[in-house]
Amino acid sequence: MIIGKLGTGKTLLLTYLNEIMQTKSSHVYTNYPINDKNTKIITFKHFDFNDKTKLIPPNNSFIGFDESFLYMDGTDPKTTKLIHNGKIPYILLARHFNNNLCITAQRPNMVWNNIRELATCTIIPLSLKKPPNGKTLIPKFFIMELGVFQDMDMYEIWKNKSMERVSDGKKSKRKSDMGLGVKFFK
């Protein structure tokens, strides 16, 4: 699960993970177009066990699903269960098919509660910078700092401690802390 504000690099990171996963699986999907012949487009309807007209992704697939809130409203679980009752089992059981499902959202509460609880980790893009080359409009690479948390509780603890430090006039700590279940990467 990748959580971050608008413009923090969620889709860029998801696209990068897509490229990496192509070395591990021949079944790579996203819900947005990528100029890549090995990536197939998938819709939310492909997750529906009740809809026999769409094939669900095969075992050992990587599925990158950007802006999940547009499809499944995490803030309204009762309606979500009614509307998406055929899709929820696939999403919750994807790991049993050896499928890696990576979703993005702008805020944690936008992701349906049951998905948040089952997430293997939460990735938070903390900063995204263009390299200082100055010659091209479209850089060939970006510098991204990520926080990888074991779960949302660990992220909330880190965020609250960081907010306390900032309110005391100190810098936010971005050091890995296995006791807190957090790793930072650049």
Results as ranks from 00 to 15, higher is better:
F49C: 01
D51G: 02
I56W: 08
P57D: 07
P58F: 14
N60E: 07
S61R: 15
F62I: 06
F62N: 02
G64Q: 14
F65Y: 15
D66H: 15
F69G: 12
F69P: 10
L70Y: 15
L70T: 14
Y71K: 04
Y71E: 08
D73R: 12
T75Q: 11
P77C: 11
T79D: 12
K81Q: 10
I83W: 15
H84R: 12
H84T: 06
N85D: 12
G86F: 00
K87M: 15
I88L: 05
I88F: 11
P89F: 00
A94E: 11
F97M: 06
N100R: 08
L101C: 11
C102I: 10
A105P: 13
A105Q: 14
Q106G: 06
N109H: 09
N109W: 13
N109Y: 14
M110Q: 13
L118G: 10
C121P: 02
P125E: 02
K130A: 05
K130I: 03
P132A: 11
K135N: 09
K135L: 04
K135T: 06
P139D: 05
F141G: 13
F141V: 06
I143T: 03
M144I: 05
M152I: 07
D153A: 04
W158M: 02
W158N: 07
K159M: 08
N160L: 08
M163Q: 13
S167Q: 03
D168I: 00
D168F: 08
G169T: 00
K170W: 03
S172R: 01
K173I: 00
R174Q: 05
K175F: 06
K175S: 02
D177V: 04
G179K: 09
G179A: 07
G179I: 03
V182R: 08
F184N: 00
F185R: 01
